[in-house]
Design a protein around this nucleic acid. Sequence first.
DNA 1: TGGCGACATTGATTTACAACAACGACCATG
DNA 2: CATGGTCGTTGTTGTAAATCAATGTCGCCA
Lengths: 244, 244
Amino acid sequence: MVHLSGIETRQHGACDCGDLCRGCEARVLSVCGSLEDEAFVGLQKLNHPVNFPARAVLFNQETPVRHVFTVVHGVVRLYKLLPDGRRQIVGFALPGDFLGLALADGYGFCADAVTAVTVCRFSRDHFGDYADQHPQMLRRLHDMATHELALAQQQMVLLGRRDAEEKLASFLLGLQKRWARISGKSSVTIDLPMGRQDIADFLGLTIETVSRTLNRMARDKLIVIVPDGVRVMDAARLEAIASA
Amino acid sequence: MVHLSGIETRQHGACDCGDLCRGCEARVLSVCGSLEDEAFVGLQKLNHPVNFPARAVLFNQETPVRHVFTVVHGVVRLYKLLPDGRRQIVGFALPGDFLGLALADGYGFCADAVTAVTVCRFSRDHFGDYADQHPQMLRRLHDMATHELALAQQQMVLLGRRDAEEKLASFLLGLQKRWARISGKSSVTIDLPMGRQDIADFLGLTIETVSRTLNRMARDKLIVIVPDGVRVMDAARLEAIASA
DNA sequence: TGGCGACATTGATTTACAACAACGACCATG
DNA sequence: CATGGTCGTTGTTGTAAATCAATGTCGCCA
């Protein structure tokens, strides 16, 4: 895995954040959505918008934790590496997702940009202090953490007890739902900005198995493969496989 | 630092809870450990100690969430079932562990007793109200949730990217550390109160593979298999395998 | 004491997926 | 418009673990 130096570009030089947040497409989905106006303004002051190009590293397992983020734009992959190079992707962060729920310890995983990414970045300490002074925010963080935990447990079932086809069906439908929630409208076309290897490392498969299984699903008319995505042709059958 | 005294477990008292908690061996490890005396007394009032025999069901995926628990004694398995009966154990709860971090949704999984179990049971609503009024408690819950999340991510790596021997080695050493933390002293003998099938369903293997792998490890003099447990003979080599 | 039932072990065989290998599509760049 | 790079597909072979099938061990209780 190549470690590109994280090239950070400050988005709006003079931090006129009010405008930035007002137009934010991710607001209602993220931590910010929980706040009253007054509290929200306080949080905005801590906000530093940052852009990363595709493949840039946001942080890695070793880095001391200095920041927390909410993704505004783009897709981030979160993963762990074994000493011999095997990789397990533990999640894909989409717009609205929060990175840095564990305020205490190290991040525990690496994060880099799959596509070009825009995040709101906060100093970990400032954000932590802020949370401690705003129980509603703490509550929101806790709810997000337990939600993440539930997802992680689902993923354990998938990794431990499902075959390749079930894994892919679940993955596709899960992503479809998440995109729908973000854009506000559901679509039969599922955008897959991540590569086959990323999907493989998320599902505990090899790239060849992902490719073969996807193409078999296409042959079986469950899906059609399109550039950077798939189109769902038989949602019913796909869901039957996913929740089998 | 902690010094646990007597192992006496006085359960049934019709709720003179002060005494119960004072002698509680799990206190410092659990949610209770975070509280000042005054707040702690308030929490005690909500407490209902309950015993379950081995194999008893604490709750399941479908049950509406009425209670949260901390385990005081014994071992609880937490698992999810697929429609066709495949099972994934998502964790084993040991003394000090908290069940019911997700205060909002359903439990999302089943829990039953591996051994005889004693828990402190709280009404979900009372506990939730209490937490909302005690930010330190909320903070503690959040810390526990993020800790759980980190463990879940470790488990994803294990399930997705490790072979049978690595899985068993990690499992054994992980359990050894947890028992050490609970009892205050580490031991080369690791108690395994759960059966082979439970281990298999936790590690994403079959019972046969667990049995074979464990016995191969014994043949290789990494461990010795004893009734209801194993004894670590070559910790260094075992750890090398576990973190390979 | 003997027999039943739950659990664990062991062996033979099959299989889903990994690993290896080659090739094709796409596109950036000189 | 060649050239090299990344990424995805497809074919072949190999293997770890699943599956199928006995057999063994232990505790319980009639």
